[in-house]
């Protein structure tokens, strides 16, 4: 089949991508691991020394660590629940016959294309601002007290913004999966007198299971790295109320210049992400064989 020459040519064509990606992965990761065992502050050059696991114990005992871990999990879980439940509901809704379906789909998908800094600023200033924001105007019109969202519920507010950005993604993928639903089976069940709820629970949901898993895994990878939304809205505050692991590492290494401590935190984030990644890879790997 494939000749010797074409096999060698194939190898040559593949190698630049493989070599570059390998370097991209191994060099910085190796450096992070190395730094994580050093006392290394950019403000005090020349004082680097090996300290073993000191950075790790500092990182784990940092008063911001537990709040950051809890905030990270809360943010990720909150967004996942909203987007998966909302995404399934929207996918089922969009799948019904209606007028102007194409336009509806375009409107629903739109938030995914908004860059994070824009959506964070628009939500923070124009919608959620307690004085001039639209929500405040609505509250006043209804005779209610406007809410200062980022002061009273910073993490919930950020969760809402991020969920708004990712709902389109979940919807789009679940809607795509709906297209391959067996319509004849659906109709047969309907003929047999199965109600819409029975059909949803026993036919639609199992069919969407796989797509839902993919949505959960991929979003988790991206959500663990949420950054711009926090930087623009609360800067992690008040206190540590909206500091996530990613943001904590950013503060330690880019604002306090503590490279050693930041690197230890980075490695913790890598381990956390890897746990998710293993499941995701297994799913995609299975698909590759099919």
């Amino acid at each position: 089949m494939a000749t010797q020459a074409s096999r060698i040519a194939g190898r040559l064509m593949l190698s630049p991508a493989v070599v570059l990606l390998f370097l991209w992965m191994i060099v910085p990761l190796g450096m992070t691991i190395y730094f994580s065992f050093l006392r290394f502050n950019l403000l005090m050059p020349g004082t680097e020394e090996f300290t073993g696991f000191e950075n790790y114990s500092y990182f784990f005992t940092d008063p911001a660590f537990w709040p950051a871990l809890v905030n990270t999990l809360t943010l990720v879980l909150g967004v996942l629940v909203i987007t998966v439940v909302g995404g399934v509901a929207l996918a089922v809704l969009l799948d019904q016959p209606m007028w102007g379906q194409g336009i509806v789909r375009i409107l629903v998908i739109a938030p995914f294309f908004v860059m994070p800094s824009v959506s964070a600023l628009v939500w923070k200033n124009m919608l959620m601002n307690p004085v001039n924001g639209l929500f405040a105007a609505l509250a006043r019109a209804l005779g209610l007290q406007p809410i200062d969202f980022f002061a009273s519920a910073p993490l919930a507010s950020i969760t809402a913004i991020v969920a708004w950005q990712w709902l389109p993604f979940a919807t789009l993928i679940l809607f795509t999966a709906m297209q391959s639903l067996d319509r004849e089976q659906m109709e047969a069940a309907e003929m047999d007198g199965a109600g819409p709820i029975w059909r949803f629970v026993h036919l639609t949901l199992p069919h969407l299971m796989r797509a839902m898993t993919v949505v959960v895994l991929i979003q988790t990878i991206f959500l663990l790295s949420v950054f711009a939304e926090i930087l623009v809205t609360t800067n992690g505050g008040p206190g540590t109320a909206s500091t996530t692991l990613t943001f904590l590492v950013y503060m330690q290494s880019m604002l306090q210049f503590d490279v050693g401590l930041g690197s230890a935190g980075g490695i913790v984030a890598v381990i956390l992400a890897n746990i998710v990644a293993i499941f995701l890879m297994r799913m995609i790997g299975k698909n590759l064989e099919a």
Binding site: S6, G10, V18, M25, P28, T32, N274
Partner: peptide, 29 residues
Amino acid sequence: FVPGKRTKDILMWMLSTKMLPAVGVLVPI
């Protein structure tokens, strides 16, 4: 078009590099 024995492994490995959270390599980069 010229898949080898390890093509699938290479593909999966490439994907795995994407799973590395950016913040883990922020300082070195």
